[in-house]
């Protein structure tokens, strides 16, 4: 196997004796797009800041292409960083902001620098805005400038700290695609921190799920979604139903369940206790009445037409089909905090 591009080895960080990162190990492949995903306070931003060198670590080592860069100051690492707040210099124009990091680099001639700025502006589609000041730009445009500024220095690593979370939903989706396109065009190894699982699923090659200072799982989006290692990952990435049957403890995605008008071989009698319209599908909350999974409450995503039909013909009494192959088996004490009340399932973070 190829050597990892970036390697974190036992990174530990404490604030006032509180452990924020607990001996974190991580390897990132060259040219990949990775997302560090986790709820707020899980240590993901601290990890990113440690990679960048802004934050000092208490224990552990950071390697880039096999070199120990642990004690290297941010200015010596040549990483590009983009912050949630954009942190554009308000007194500089778009071009000046992008050119900012190039100025003190002696390896470029003036002409080179101009060309790089021009390329960057083109890359982020801001040709019209190049002479404007940040206050004259929209949030999305400002973030593009921040991105271009970080990319202009041809960084060895691009670090994005929640770059999209200050934007409205529509701009966010648009810029998400842009990010991927730019990554594919430049081929720069990118690490992005986000709390938005949808962002992580759609954008990245690898997802690193973090919780309480620990890495819970690393894998491709499909891997993490389909084979969550534990209830935390399962519930944080996508929506997950948790079922208890005696001592056994399973997870199942809502779209894997089917509502039936009449019983089938493996079906269980159930009652609809609520539903909400979601456009192409209905999200239905169902209480299983009897059988192996009696007393579990689950949600089921059902195509709209089908659900309307079912509701019309059968009323609230229905059957639910749970296929064994779709069940994810967890150990009964895998650390999932509580199975009572509303914590029974986690909705996506929208």
């Amino acid at each position: 196997m190829k050597k990892p591009y970036l390697r974190l080895d036992g990174i530990t960080k404490r604030y006032d004796n509180k452990i924020v990162l607990n001996s974190v190990n991580l390897e990132i492949k060259k040219g990949s797009f990775s997302c560090i995903l986790g709820p707020s306070g899980c240590g993901k931003t601290t990890l990113l800041r440690i990679i960048s060198g802004i934050e000092q670590l208490d224990e552990g080592l950071v390697f880039l292409e096999g070199d120990d860069i642990t004690d290297l100051s941010p200015s010596k690492r040549n990483f590009g960083i983009v912050f949630q707040s954009y942190a554009l210099f308000p007194n500089l124009t778009v071009s000046e902001n992008i050119a900012y990091g190039l100025e003190s680099r002696k390896k470029f001639t003036k002409k080179d620098k101009k060309q790089i700025v021009k390329n960057m502006i083109k890359l982020v589609h801001l040709e019209q805005e190049k002479d404007r000041y940040p206050y004259q730009l929209s949030g999305g445009q400002q973030q593009r400038v921040a991105l271009a500024r970080a990319l202009a220095i041809s960084p060895k690593l691009l670090l994005l700290d929640e770059p999209l979370s200050a934007l409205d939903a529509k701009v966010r989706i648009e810029l998400r695609r842009e990010l991927r396109r730019i990554h594919d065009e430049t081929g720069i190894t990118t690490i992005m921190v986000t709390h938005d699982q949808e962002e992580a699923l759609t954008l990245s090659d690898h997802i690193v799920v973090m919780n309480q200072g620990n890495i819970e799982q690393i894998g491709t989006p499909d891997d993490v979604y389909s084979n969550p290692k534990n209830p935390f990952v399962a519930s944080f990435v996508g929506t997950m139903n948790f079922l208890k049957a005696g001592e056994d403890f399973f997870g199942v995605r809502p779209e894997k369940l089917t509502i039936l008008k009449a019983p089938l071989a493996d079906s269980h009698p159930a009652e609809i206790i609520g539903y909400e319209f979601r456009g192409s599908y209905y999200r239905v909350t169902v209480q299983i009445i009897s059988g192996k999974y009696a007393d579990n409450e689950v949600i089921v995503d059902t195509p709209s037409e089908q659900f309307v039909d079912t509701l019309f013909s059968s009323g609230k009494k229905i059957y639910i089909d749970i296929s064994e192959k779709d069940l994810i088996i967890f150990s009964p004490y895998s650390g999932f905090p509580s199975l009572k009340g509303k914590n029974r399932f986690f909705d996506d973070n929208l």
Binding site: S52, F79, S85, G101, E103
Partner: peptide, 23 residues
């Protein structure tokens, strides 16, 4: 002034005095 200005500048390897005079 945003506290991240310094960080951005440092990550771009711009010397402190230049950041100070420029921003």
């Amino acid at each position: 002034l945003d506290n991240e200005y310094e960080t951005v500048s440092e990550s771009l390897s711009v010397p402190f005095y230049k950041f100070f005079t420029k921003v």
